[in-house]
Design a protein around this nucleic acid. Sequence first.
DNA 1: GCACACTGGATCATATACGATTTCGTACTT
DNA 2: AAGTACGAAATCGTATATGATCCAGTGTGC
Lengths: 224, 224
Amino acid sequence: MNTSSKDGTVSKAEQAYQTVQSKIASGEYGPGYRLVLGRIAADLGCSAVPVREAIRRLEAEGLVRFERNVGATVTGIDPTEYLYTMQTLSLVEGYATALSAPLVTAEDLAKAKAINAEMRDCLEHFDPVRFTALNREFHSALFTNCPNPHILDLVHRGWNRLGALRSSTFSYVPGRAQDSVAEHERLLELIEAKADAGTIEAAARAHRIATLDAYLKHTPSTTS
Amino acid sequence: MNTSSKDGTVSKAEQAYQTVQSKIASGEYGPGYRLVLGRIAADLGCSAVPVREAIRRLEAEGLVRFERNVGATVTGIDPTEYLYTMQTLSLVEGYATALSAPLVTAEDLAKAKAINAEMRDCLEHFDPVRFTALNREFHSALFTNCPNPHILDLVHRGWNRLGALRSSTFSYVPGRAQDSVAEHERLLELIEAKADAGTIEAAARAHRIATLDAYLKHTPSTTS
DNA sequence: GCACACTGGATCATATACGATTTCGTACTT
DNA sequence: AAGTACGAAATCGTATATGATCCAGTGTGC
């Protein structure tokens, strides 16, 4: 996954990639932010060439849009984009969760339960950011055992894209958080009961689609 | 999607990308092929820098593996890799087909039927290469209307990865081609009858998984 | 004969330099 | 006052150059 040499060093191209990616994920580079090669290079203390490579990779991942002779900008997540991303994520995450389910250990399950419990606590003095972080951890625990690395990669990419949104759906749609916790509960039951793959996939997919629907319902016609 | 300027020119980086990608797809650069930057640059009549960028994009797409200070090689599709790719494709293609189904026009359907008819003809004096090409066209016709561009992109990437295999599954597994044509038939019926999305998705997914299974069954324990 | 250190060539990684293109502000015309 | 033409600054695109790293082949010592 990385480009590390035998010693601990990493290439500047890799550094640039990681830096920019994390800044996009953290929201420091918000949608539409203009990624000026020279500036990033100066920040990193290197020349523009490695930065270009990093940007090229981010471009291929869809996180950045690149225009010839103009420059790179962080891909905006407009409502339509959000819909597409969530839909895709529902698909791959659902499947990843189902594939992962038979391989989930007791520890994983316990961890997921603990996280969900924490999420429930979190509901009272509601902190959307924390809740979202926990949500990601929860699902992470459920799909990390997915044996198909391609699908796992797609799931991570989906989450990354979503992470670029400053705050989460949960801050926009008040009621959704409660439902979400309840659905997690049921998902855990299914996995624990070793339900068949189709059932788990459907549940996991429906869970994410429900979040999307809640968002769509709550947001007035943002149909572009 | 491209990096074309206002005039018809494209950047060398884009040229390099297209060239290398098509050579991988066509099999000219087979799995494990070593992509030497300087050589490719010389072939294209440019310097190594744009080639590096192209390779970086291909890396992010999973078509190429890049190792620091060593170089880039075309990602091999060993049996395990094939399994993962087919599984992923079954997932995204199935969904894409289902999403696309309500939007399929009469023309699309007619075209798909024609292609499948041609495939049936093709069964007699069997030509695996031609059959595979038709197969791709057939499915293409069924999922191109998919409204979610991300998923559509994933489908295309899956096909591209598969395309890197010299010949197809059909040349390895004799009986599969017949079954495949029959399954196409049923898939067309479902779409024409406006079956619900779940049914179509399941059928499309099963169709691909069946090809995978046929391959796995036919190939002796290639468990690495 | 085998293991290990060395050396040469190939290739990668990055910096720098310069030309090309776009963009934006300013002045001029109508 | 609005629109257009020009020019300058910013930024990108690519070539070239140089240092770093890896790999293979060679020779030496045990």
